[in-house]
Design a protein around this nucleic acid. Structure first.
Lengths: 354, 354
DNA sequence: ATTGTGCGGTAAACCGCTTAACTGAGGCGT
DNA sequence: ACGCCTCAGTTAAGCGGTTTACCGCACAAT
């Protein structure tokens, strides 16, 4: 292994000078700089991150702590991760995905080892034990998501209020008055405290009230099967429903499938708007899902930035709330759309049984 | 930060003794052991991984190198990752997901920094430039997947031959003779060299020949849309087809959707068997996909094990090929199934147009 | 008694880099 | 011409462990 010493020797300078140049932490004349750079090139030097980490007490590694067991790592998470990793690399940091449990014990272990400079915390719960662990350890961190009381916590999150408001307005303006929300399953103990579900539901209650809409909320976990079941419940319990909002993207796939199975045309008979979804998932539904597109790339990037600012001592990034933006698909139309008679639906088959 | 020195002091021993105990690298009497352990407990000591790494030249971190940009991180990958991470943790290693490009430059950078002891390489191409990078750097590594010439390379992979053979036999025994394979899109320059696609297609050619089946292969990338298009091509180009094998799981979703759209009943009119799929994805299709279940958990675990054996100097794990196992769903039945007349299909709707 | 010899334990040299304190050589004001 | 700064570089003390060489002691064998 070629070390800094080798480089220094070959360049005829002291090892400290090499270090200063590398870190740009003290000026170096053009002449010496050239000599050192040449030496590094000749020798194929790469600085040892571990040694640097030990000496400087900064590893330049940040972890994205992900509760891999509780939350499936789906398309959306993938977006968060890749955009976050990219943002980190641009600032000379490494962002790695670190699987940790939701309770904080693995996280504590990770932090104790001094391997990471900071943590981007995903899938934050409203009252998240991991936050205490992070606080105690003194490790800087940023949240993608947010807790209930976030006094000064650095975070970015989806703007659920705006997202839900926009979604409902869109349906409302198309003429829908009989809405239902297929929400998260807050009865599931693992998720009763899960921010996105709680906040979306809260937002929906507010928005529904302000639009004077009936409040129909069906709990549903994030699986296709659960979505099918939930769709069935909506049909039996609220048969007058003309449009359904679905919070979970995999559930949305099930909702579409379930409705079709029972002979409903989408969007002719009933519209489906998926609330937090990525295009890849939307494309999996049969009429492609109309969705509010999860701002994954933005949040991943901002979350990392929020963390790195702390690490670099820059002034903190103020909390950011980004709404999911409406993205057209083929599962939303006006209620009892005029063309339901014309039969000119370009996709062919339309069943009218039951 | 509480260091080993603190512990040693409190226990009244030398720092070396503490180290020996911690690493179990030299015997320590029960009495001193007890004192040291008590001291560690009192002080809440956690050994600093960075220092340990520098001194011992082992970081105890292994990276799963994943080409995040080229390959979408889907459900299957998620399985690989979590099972690999679990296996690593059981042996006192950390497995982190490290996003690297397919060309090897980012990988080289990662290795040069001495941050990881070894690498589990994912999404291996038949002639993968990253292998050379790994070889040059001298870093131990294991492949999940395999290259063409793998002289002594430590690897685990899917047993494509058995998988395809089992899949074809299943359909054959049900009476299907008119098969088609919707394969990977080897014309895509990013994937022309992608092991799973090449090997599956090769295997299929062999098996089809040995079963005396017609050779119908449609290229198709791994998206739902591509699957829809491919399904259409099968119908127009090979309308007599009674069963379709689909290599890519997201394409399989599209195939099912596409067939239904054109008024075909699945599996009444045509069967669909998805070749490398995880249950989560299978559940997203409308009749739930019948599949060959990707042995993700096994491979993740074995891949890690193969790497760790090298790191620990144990005798190497011989290469392992694991077939995907048949897993029933609702998209496969016999051709023109007898019950097609009885009309007792429990799922309701059955269209017979076209 | 003498000599090994195994064994629990210690001292100290690193591992490769960062960084505070220091040095020495101009340049500048007066 | 003198002190005083400034500035590029150097020296050396860590960072928190691992690991090699060594030490002294008790016990068995000679």
């Amino acid at each position: 292994m070629v070390t800094m010493k080798d480089v220094a020797q070959r360049a005829g300078v002291s090892i400290a000078t090499v270090s200063f140049l590398l870190n740009d932490t003290k000026p170096v004349t053009a002449a010496t700089r050239a000599r050192i750079e040449q030496a590094m090139l000749d020798l194929g030097y790469r600085r040892n991150m571990v040694a640097r980490a030990l000496a400087s007490r900064r590893t330049h590694i940040v972890a994205m702590a992900y509760p891999a067991l509780e939350h499936r790592f789906g398309m959306s998470t993938s977006e968060f991760f890749t955009s976050a990793a990219e943002a980190a690399r641009k600032q000379d940091y490494h962002l790695v995905l670190w699987p940790v449990g939701n309770d904080g014990v693995e996280l504590r272990e990770l932090l104790g080892q001094g391997l990471v400079d900071g943590v981007v915390l995903m899938e934050v719960q409203l009252d998240d034990p991991r936050i205490d662990v992070l606080r105690q350890s003194g490790t800087p961190f940023a949240l993608i998501g947010r807790t209930t009381e976030l006094d000064g916590l650095s975070h970015v999150d989806i703007d659920f209020d705006t997202t839900v408001e926009d979604a409902v307005r869109h349906l409302y303006e198309l003429g829908h008055r009989e809405l239902a929300l297929i929400s998260g399953d807050l009865d599931d103990p693992r998720f009763h405290d899960y921010g996105p579900w709680v906040r979306t539901e809260e937002a929906y209650r507010r928005v529904a009230a302000s639009y004077d809409l009936p409040l129909r909320i069906i709990p549903c976990s994030d699986t296709t099967q659960a979505g099918k079941d939930a769709a069935a419940r909506v049909l039996t319990e609220h048969s007058e429903t003309t449009a359904i909002l679905v919070l979970n993207e995999y559930a949305a796939l099930g909702v579409v499938a379930g409705l079709k199975h029972t002979g409903h045309d989408i969007p002719g008979d009933i519209s489906v708007l998926s609330l937090l979804t990525v295009p890849e998932t939307a494309a999996m539904a049969d009429p492609e899902l109309t969705m509010m597109r999860t701002p994954g790339p933005e949040l991943g990037q901002l979350g990392t930035q929020a963390l790195l600012r702390q690490l670099e001592g820059d002034d903190p990034l103020p909390p950011q709330l980004i709404p999911a933006k409406f993205s057209p698909g083929a599962t939303v139309a006006g209620p009892r759309a005029p063309r339901s008679k014309g039969g000119a639906g370009r996709r062919g088959a339309r069943k009218a049984r039951s």
